[in-house]
Amino acid sequence: MGSSRDRDSEGRARNARPRDGLGRPLPYGAQGVSRQPEGVVRTPEETVGEAQALLAAGKPFHAHEVFEDAWKSGPHSERALWRGLAQLAVGLTHAARGNAAGGARLLRRGAAAVEEWAAGSGERQPYGIDLAGVVGWASELAEAVERGGGPVDARARAPRLRGAGPS
């Protein structure tokens, strides 16, 4: 009996449906947003720049993919940093999709991971990332999402990685 699941060239399950700007699956044949290529090795500066551009464009799901690549390919000592930043991007994704509880939870989890990494490493601005500003942004957004409950505008609420506040 054959599987009806989409598979990539190596046989792994991979949903081939097009996706919207927030990573939600669309019907087959619909016009979607191009996906981020997976497994790309970038310099940390390229990672931050590409993720910031995607966040500013209202595509936090795609920014998450860029951070995930850094988490998986970067030095072990930085994995918690990139994982925390990926969680923040997913938190914004959930908040933009209207999932207030999941969004707030991931924003707080990502902020805690970034804070913990900074405390352990002694780095406050790795690769120019304003970690204190990003953590403050995440905390404020988590509170706003919990109060408001509705979807947020991902573009308007995107963080500025290299400077406090929205981009």
Results as ranks from 00 to 15, higher is better:
Met1Arg: 15
Ser3Pro: 03
Asp6Tyr: 10
Asp6Ser: 08
Arg7Ala: 13
Asn15Lys: 09
Ala16Trp: 08
Pro18Leu: 10
Gly21Asp: 13
Gly21Lys: 06
Leu22Ile: 00
Leu22Trp: 00
Leu22Arg: 05
Gly23Phe: 02
Arg24Ser: 11
Pro25Met: 05
Pro25Leu: 14
Leu26Trp: 00
Leu26Val: 02
Tyr28Val: 14
Gly29Ala: 08
Gly29Ile: 08
Ala30Lys: 10
Ala30Tyr: 03
Ala30Asp: 04
Val33Gln: 03
Ser34Met: 09
Arg35Tyr: 02
Gln36His: 09
Pro37Met: 03
Gly39Arg: 05
Gly39Asp: 03
Gly39Trp: 06
Val41Thr: 11
Thr43Pro: 11
Glu45Ile: 02
Thr47Tyr: 00
Val48Ile: 03
Gly49Phe: 00
Ala53Pro: 02
Leu54His: 01
Ala56Gly: 08
Ala56Ser: 13
Ala56Arg: 12
Gly58Asn: 10
Gly58Phe: 02
Ala63Thr: 02
Val66Lys: 00
Phe67Met: 12
Glu68Cys: 09
Ala70Thr: 11
Trp71Glu: 14
Lys72Trp: 10
Pro75Ile: 01
Ser77Trp: 12
Glu78Thr: 07
Ala80Leu: 13
Arg83Cys: 12
Arg83His: 14
Gly84Glu: 01
Leu85Glu: 01
Ala86Met: 07
Val90Cys: 10
Thr93Val: 11
Thr93Trp: 02
His94Phe: 09
Ala96Ile: 09
Gly98Ile: 05
Asn99Met: 07
Ala100Ser: 02
Ala100Val: 09
Gly102Trp: 05
Gly102Arg: 06
Gly102Pro: 14
Ala104Leu: 12
Ala104Ser: 09
Arg105Gly: 12
Leu106Glu: 04
Leu106Ser: 11
Leu106Asp: 11
Arg108Gly: 09
Arg109Met: 14
Ala111Tyr: 03
Ala112Ile: 06
Ala112Met: 01
Ala112Val: 08
Ala113Glu: 12
Glu115Trp: 00
Arg124Leu: 08
Arg124Ala: 14
Gln125Tyr: 03
Tyr127Lys: 04
Tyr127Val: 15
Tyr127Ile: 09
Ile129Tyr: 03
Asp130Asn: 03
Asp130Tyr: 01
Leu131Val: 15
Gly133Thr: 07
Gly136Asp: 09
Ala138Tyr: 06
Ser139Asp: 10
Leu141Phe: 10
Ala142Ile: 06
Glu143Cys: 03
Glu143Tyr: 04
Val145His: 04
Glu146Gln: 15
Glu146Arg: 15
Glu146Gly: 15
Arg147Thr: 09
Arg147Tyr: 07
Ala154Glu: 01
Ala156Cys: 08
Arg160Asp: 09
Arg160Pro: 08
Leu161Thr: 04
Leu161Gly: 06
